[in-house]
Amino acid sequence: MQKKVFTIGLFACIVALVALAQFHLLDDYYLSVIMFMGVNVILAASLNLVNGYMGEFSCGHGGFMCVGAYVSSLCTVLMFSKNQMLGAPLLPPQLAFIGLPIALFIGSMAAAVAGLVVAIPSFKTRGDYLAIITLAANYIVISAINNMEFVGGPRGFMGMSATVRDMENMIDLPWMLIFVLLGMVFTIWILRRFVSSTLGKGVPAICQDEIAAEIMSVDTNHMKLIAFMLSSGLAGLAGGLYAHVLGYVNPQSFDIMRSTEVMVMVYLGGMGSLSGAAIAAVSYTVLMEALRFLDVWKWVVIPLLLILLMQFRPEGLMGNRELSDFFPKLRKYYSFK
């Protein structure tokens, strides 16, 4: 019974948030901050699988997010909106409820496949060289999208808001908020299940010692494949949600700066801590909004913050511990590991 309290509480929170948004008690600014928070939680948690639990150094997360964002946007635009290049909508607007989740799913799958570009070289290389590969993957994705005329190239791509509008016309609810919150819960759920499963124990084993893990019958190549594809797939989900929240994407918003942001969140939260990643993502988003007045200096302060973090507390806020290690009483309600 007590274990259920957490799940019930979580969904009560979601319903409360949605209700607040529905009755316009939250203004649009706070609403959008909450949605970006959700997207950031997905990004940080998914990167944490590779950078935290597996101990690799992947710095091209923005690239996978970009793939997810573009593919899912392309799907919804094809299905539900009129576009000069892609023609009239293929499906009636009533199907938007099914269409958006399917588009998000296809986007995630595409991002997971793009993750192969990094996963396969990771069989042979590790450490610094793998970091370069992920970075190159990020640049390749951005550069490829810049050269694709049918999604607008460097000018960006829009038309996704038609789908959201279709849904809101049918039933008047803040649909994107609901999808972002559900996506966030789904991400945390699937990552926690994966990491605490027997199969998933192989991921921290690779972090500890790859050769020893292999001797202990962990199929390291297989594990890497799963971890990279899961991580990039979830990044693709975040990208799809981000694109539909904004209604507009352009390749520059997924460049190395975005990847750095996600990395900051992961290392701020602590490597190998899901609750750490979530807390860091939320506090980072709040910090970014609070530091808005700094303007250009914001991008000096944030890297400096991370440098200081590396000097004085390299393990991040939580280290590899979960919330329950700090507040043991929480264990009654939820098993974090």
Binding site: T260, V296, L304, I307
Partner: peptide, 24 residues
């Protein structure tokens, strides 16, 4: 004797500080 990873992150961030500090 910090982990090499921390040094790499520091290097990346130092680059960003130089870039954006110049911009600012």
């Amino acid at each position: 004797g910090a982990n090499r990873l921390y040094v790499v992150i520091t290097a990346l961030m130092a680059g960003l500080v130089l870039e954006n500090g110049n911009l600012a």
